[in-house]
């Protein structure tokens, strides 16, 4: 089990390492060019999402907010129950001395 963990992790590290090493050795110039290309691409994309908040986008916004709120309430419920249980255990410990 543990060995498998370590193997998976080392594979992940190798995957992560390759591009880091690669970009380390390429020149700053290359990286700049990459960034510049990226920005150029972005500039092309920029005019596309014209920011006019239509009714449609605000519906999406409310939906996303609903999902986030549900996630938070789930987490909050879990934390709250955990807190109560720990408090109960603490009380028990205190009573036993």
């Amino acid at each position: 089990m543990r060995l498998i963990n370590i193997l998976v992790l080392s594979a992940a590290l190798a995957v992560i390492a390759a591009p880091v090493f690669h970009s380390a050795a390429t020149d700053t110039k290359c990286a700049c060019a990459f960034a510049a290309a990226d920005q150029a691409q972005e500039a092309k994309v920029e005019p596309a999402p014209a920011e006019t908040p239509t009714a449609d986008s605000s519906v999406v916004l409310y939906r996303v907010m609903g999902v986030v709120l549900i996630v938070w309430f789930g987490l909050a419920f879990f934390l709250f129950m955990l807190d109560r249980r720990v408090a109960a255990l603490e009380n028990e410990m205190r009573q036993r001395g």
Binding site: E51, S57, M65, V68, W72, A76, F80
Partner: peptide
Amino acid sequence: YILMPATILLAFLWAPPAAILGD
């Protein structure tokens, strides 16, 4: 427990969308 839902509401309802990035 109070601040987190408040954050979510503020983030989605009160704060204006950024100029280019939008919502």
